[in-house]
């Protein structure tokens, strides 16, 4: 059996995409280390090891080609995101458990790479929020502060580079940030005492990470251009509501999961018109 046309392929691969995402996280990580010390590196290492181990075990169990999938880098992306979202001063087992849960339960129980309905990192974050709230809330939660602004800036830089590299499109980050600014700014102007200001949101660790790295996960998000705008806007609004009306300081994980479940519906409703059907064709 030979393959059919086209006989030539562009070099990009899943692996190269994932590696670019990892590379784009580096400026943020560097700022993190600069301001908060090397603790986060340990977290990253632990999460990566756990994720890779979990991935390898699941691949072996499911009889999938081990090296092909292990080398695709998707487990590492999940692991790094977990490590960056979790408190850097939490116990070591927190990230390990989260990474294992993300890979084994959220990714592989749904069918592995490309089949998971929910963002593994965010699902793990939510689980840990429920199971071990004491560890998640009392730590240095990612709030806005002089130092965090630098980390956020690092993520912003990495994210812009990803757009330039055409790994992600502008739709999701822009819609997310615009929607967040609009809703937070609006309520703040309306009642500055009750609602936090725009900068509190935009310059927090999670907003930039969310805009460029979490909401842009293609597998679990919307894929049509219009759909992406709704999807990211939805995450921003939910993030803000959860934050303002609820107990959790950081609503982005829940918001992402909620919108993940809407993504297929959003996609279905926002199919772009196909070639030749953008305007009403003339009568025969």
């Amino acid at each position: 059996m030979s393959n059919h046309a086209p006989y030539i392929r562009q070099p990009a691969s899943v692996r190269s995409i994932m590696l670019k995402v990892l590379a784009a996280l580096l400026p943020g990580i560097a700022a993190y280390v600069w301001w908060f010390g090397a603790g986060v590196l340990v977290q990253i290492a632990l999460a990566s090891a756990a994720a890779l181990a979990g991935e390898a075990a699941m691949l072996a169990l499911r009889r999938k080609p081990l090296w092909l999938f292990l080398g695709d880098g998707s487990a590492l992306v999940t692991a790094w995101l977990i490590a960056l979202c979790f408190p850097a001063d939490g116990p070591w087992w927190l990230v390990v458990a989260a990474a294992l849960f993300a890979i084994v339960a959220v990714k592989h129980f749904f069918g592995g790479l490309g089949r998971n309905a929910f963002n593994p990192a965010m699902a793990a974050y939510c689980l840990m929020l429920v199971v071990t709230p004491q560890w998640m809330s009392e730590s240095q939660s990612p709030v806005a502060g002089q130092e965090w602004q630098w980390v956020a800036l690092g993520y912003l830089l990495g994210g812009l580079w990803l757009i330039r590299q055409r790994v992600i499109t502008w739709h999701i980050p822009t819609a997310f940030l615009v929607a967040l600014t609009a809703i937070a700014g609006g309520f703040h102007v309306f009642n500055p005492a009750a609602y936090a200001g725009v900068e509190f949101y935009l310059l927090s660790n999670s907003a930039m990470l969310g805009a460029f790295f979490i909401a842009t996960d293609p597998v679990t998000g919307a894929t049509t251009p219009r759909g992406k705008l709704f999807y990211a806007g939805g995450i921003a609004v939910l993030t803000w509501s959860i934050r303002e009306f609820d107990i959790y300081p950081d609503g982005i994980a829940l918001a992402t999961l909620l919108m993940n479940s809407c993504a297929p519906l959003i996609d279905r409703c926002t199919q772009p018109p196909v070639f030749g059907n953008k305007i009403e064709p003339p009568a025969a």
Binding site: I247, L257, S261
Partner: peptide
């Protein structure tokens, strides 16, 4: 905890809507 409840409810509703 009510956020989790909201989420579960939302997911359930959407699941029904989709199916």
């Amino acid at each position: 905890m009510n956020a989790i409840l909201i989420m579960a409810l939302g997911a359930a509703l959407l699941g029904v809507a989709l199916r």
